[in-house]
Write a protein that binds this DNA or RNA. Structure first.
Length: 471
RNA sequence: GCCGACGUAGCUCAGUUGGUUAGAGCGCCUGAUUGUGGAUCAGGAGGUCGAUGGUUCGAAUCCAUCCGUCGGUACCA
């Protein structure tokens, strides 16, 4: 009886082509984070269930993967990196604050999988714990911009708002606090469903295209119009949005303090060169509701808006205190690595490389096998990523492999080269370009496009030059 | 989770009112060409027709249930 090779739903393998693009992305972003002076942290995939669910709502607990161990403890897989970070900060009181760390790791959520959304996925988090100062939020926003610029994701827009400003809106509209969660969740959807459906969902609800009833929040008509007025506050300029917010919230208790926080962030961003075309204020941004307490942010790729936000984050001043210690203010953001890669692939900006190798050393004469290996190891020792044939197949098959995997150079070493102390270096792409016009096989073969003979002693230097490396 | 549509080769699909051994294109493998990828030609592998149960002399085709995929919706700490 054989075993069927399949994976549970929402899980997937990452084949070399995907892993290569992923690792390059991660390396680039890590460079940005380290440039900001953040340090790496590692935590286990498995946590105690009460550590995880102590910070999650009732419904959220359902999406935690349960894990069993021989001691029969209540365990689960982490669903984000922020909760484990809060545990670490609480568990090690001597950790120097502010604790500025980055972490890239897999997380798990037992949700329904969607395109670009899986049950096991990777987050790349950047957080500052023990940082009450708005400069920390500015750093996070700037690091998001720098990361998206560094990975050449094309035009993007980072948007931010503040949970405290949203709370002021509730005050202004006279909406009960216990409805805050429902109201914010609906506001957050405006970009997706539009103002019309938002109004319906805030009041009586409606029936969607599939005939499924969407329950409404049940707000009064005047409350909905105040929210509509609030949502209309948008502009290409942060300064203008802040001015309009100030007049909208005029007279509400605490509004000037909260707007001052937003103005401080905005002013710092301007001074640092992150202007409204990169980072704007969007009052509809609410983000996840469980623990955000202040500024909240997200980022979208303008060429792939349908993939949703590729970064999300905000300030969570109360989270660490849930482990019983003092309140430690914190802020941070999380990059959705899988979603970002899916978006990049969609807009054709993901790498198409299928192998790490830059050179394939072919072997056509078993008597020259050792010499071929010596050539390969000379290249490797010079830092050139090299594969040497281990298939034992004919030369044609070896070249076909290089072609399919996208290895740019092949080295040929047969008796004819060996006699003269040279190697043939073949540039795979050249023949691919010239081949279109040739129909006869013999002519194609004898043309030997893109080939040059190189003295054995010079092979490392020649390839370095071809690959654009300084020697 | 809820509503709906759809499951035939690695991929895209055809398959008549239920009827003999389930097909095509692309891809893959082998050879022509044992030292040259593409093109061409010849050959080949690959399917319990998503699964299980039922109706029938007979099921890819009809029925039921389950699983999976896709779309919408909910959720997204």
């Amino acid at each position: 009886m054989s075993i069927k090779p399949t994976l549970s739903r929402g899980l997937r393998d990452l084949l070399p082509e995907q892993m290569i693009a992923r690792q390059r992305l991660i390396d680039t972003v890590r460079g940005v984070y380290e440039n900001y002076g953040f340090s790496p942290l590692g935590t286990p995939a498995i946590e105690y269930l009460d550590v995880l669910s102590g910070s999650a709502g009732q419904e959220a607990q359902q999406s935690i993967f349960r894990v069993s161990n021989p001691e029969d403890e209540a365990l689960g897989l982490r669903f984000d990196l922020t909760v484990p970070l809060s545990r670490v900060v609480s568990q090690y009181p001597n950790i120097p604050l502010p604790f500025r760390r980055y972490q890239v790791a897999q997380v798990w959520r037992a949700d329904k999988p969607d395109p670009g959304r899986f049950r096991q996925f990777t987050q790349f988090d950047l957080d500052a714990v023990g940082a009450p100062c708005g400069r920390a939020d500015v750093e996070i926003l700037a690091a998001i911009c720098d990361s998206l610029t560094a990975i050449e994701a094309g035009p993007f827009l980072v948007r931010f708002s503040s949970r405290k400003v949203l709370n002021l809106l509730l005050k202004r509209a006279g909406i009960a606090e216990h409805l805050a969660g429902d109201v914010f969740r609906v506001l957050d959807k405006i970009g997706k469903i539009g103002i019309g459906k938002v109004k319906l969902e805030l009041s009586a609800g409606y029936t969607d295209a599939s005939g499924d009833p969407i329950r409404g929040v049940g707000l009064a008509e005047e409350q909905v119009s105040i929210i509509e007025e609030f949502l209309a506050i948008k502009n290409k300029s942060r300064g203008d949005v802040l001015q309009r917010l100030a007049s909208f919230l005029a007279g509400i208790d605490g509004s000037s303090e909260e707007l001052a926080v937003m103005e401080d962030i905005s002013g710092n961003l301007d001074a640092l060169g992150y202007h409204s075309d990169q980072v704007n204020i969007d009052v509809s941004i609410a983000r996840g509701l469980a623990y955000y307490t202040g500024p909240v942010f997200e980022a979208v790729l303008l060429d792939a808006p349908q993939f949703g936000s590729v970064f999300g984050g905000g300030r969570y001043d109360g989270l660490v205190a849930r482990f019983g210690g003092p309140e430690i203010p914190a802020t941070g953001a999380s990059m959705g690595v899988d979603r970002l890669l899916a978006a990049l692939e969609h807009i054709g900006k993901a790498g198409q490389v299928k192998t790490a190798a830059e050179v394939l050393v072919t072997v056509m004469d078993p008597g020259l096998s050792r010499e071929c290996m010596l050539v390969a190891f000379d290249l490797r020792r010079a830092g050139i990523r090299t594969e040497v044939d281990v298939s034992g197949g004919r030369l044609g098959k070896q070249l076909k492999r290089a072609d399919k995997l996208g290895i740019p150079y092949a080295i040929l070493l047969g008796s004819s080269e060996a006699e003269r102390g040279v190697l043939t270096v073949k540039q795979m792409a050249v023949a691919r370009e010239h081949g279109a016009g040739i129909e006869e096989n013999a002519a194609w073969k004898s043309a030997r496009f893109g080939q040059q003979e190189v003295p054995r002693a010079e092979i490392v230097d020649v390839l370095r030059q071809l690959l654009g490396r300084g020697s």
